[in-house]
Design a protein around this nucleic acid. Sequence first.
DNA 1: GTGCGCATGAGAATCATTCTCGCATATGCC
DNA 2: GGCATATGCGAGAATGATTCTCATGCGCAC
Lengths: 139, 139
Amino acid sequence: MSAPGQAEGAARRPSRQRDAVLGLLEELDGFRSAQDLHTLLRERGDTVGLATVYRALQALVDDGLLDVLRGPDGEAGYRRCSPSHHHHLVCRSCGLTVEVAAPPVERWTARVAAEHGFADVRHDLEVFGTCRGCAARRG
Amino acid sequence: MSAPGQAEGAARRPSRQRDAVLGLLEELDGFRSAQDLHTLLRERGDTVGLATVYRALQALVDDGLLDVLRGPDGEAGYRRCSPSHHHHLVCRSCGLTVEVAAPPVERWTARVAAEHGFADVRHDLEVFGTCRGCAARRG
DNA sequence: GTGCGCATGAGAATCATTCTCGCATATGCC
DNA sequence: GGCATATGCGAGAATGATTCTCATGCGCAC
C-alpha cells in the first residue's frame, strides 16, 4: 500500500536479478515454478534469494511479460509469453506449451457475459492434453 | 495409498459430516473455501474438524458432486453443481455464479487440439466479471 | 563524490492443505 | 445379538508455497 507511483509510467529500477529471471524464462519452454527458477539460477552460480525471485516474477507479471498458471496442487507456474491476449495448449506430460488465439472463445465469452448482465469481463482458459510426442512415447 | 476399492462402486460409509457439508453447499450460492465452510458449520453448532471438511470435500469432488476453483491467492473454492460439463460465470465482487454451457468453446478446443496433435484433451474455462447488481451498486 | 531510496537476501512468519494418531462407530460374520 | 475389523472422525502437528521483516547494497540524481 505504500508503493509509490509504481503503477503507470513509473521507472522500474533495472536489476540484474530481474533480468536473470526473465532471461532464464526466455530460454525455457513451458511453465516453471518459482522454486524451480530459483534452483536453476542458483545452479548457474547466480546468487539470488528466493524472495527476490518471487518479487521479480510479480513485477514481470505486472508488466505483462509473463503468464501465470496455477496447478491443481496450488503451485504457480510462470512462462515468458507474448503480450497480446492468448491462451495455452499445455502438454500434461512434458509441459510443452503452445500459444493459441481463440477468436470464437472471445466472441462467445462476450456474448454470454452480456446475456447475463456481466460487465468488465475477463476469462481464463487453459487446454491440457498429451502432445504427439508424448502420446507416441507411451504407445 | 492403502485405500481399498474406494474407487468405483465401493460403498462410501454414510456420514453426518459429509451430508452437512453437502447440505450447506446446496444452500449457498457461489464458491466457498474449505475454511469458510468449516467456520459456517461450527457457527451452526455442528462439531466438525477442519480436516474432516477437507476430506468430505475431496470425497464429494471425487463423486462429481462439486466443482473446484482455485483463486489467484491459491485458495480453493467449492461449489455444488450439476454433474454435466459446464463452465462458470462468476461475479468477482459478490461471488454470484452462473453455470453456462459453451458449445462453441468445446468445438474450438477439440479443433485446436487436433491441429496441434494433442490427444486426451481437457480444458478449464472460467469467466469473471461484475454482475449487474454489483455494477449498479458501485455506480 | 555524496546521499537518498528502492532492490536485495536470509530467515522468520503466514496460510492453506495434508498427515498422524488414537478413538468412535458402522458393517460383516457368526 | 455380540464380537472383529475397517472406515470415519477430531485435534494438532507437519508440510510446502508464498510473503513479510529488516539490515544492507547499489543505482541514479545532484
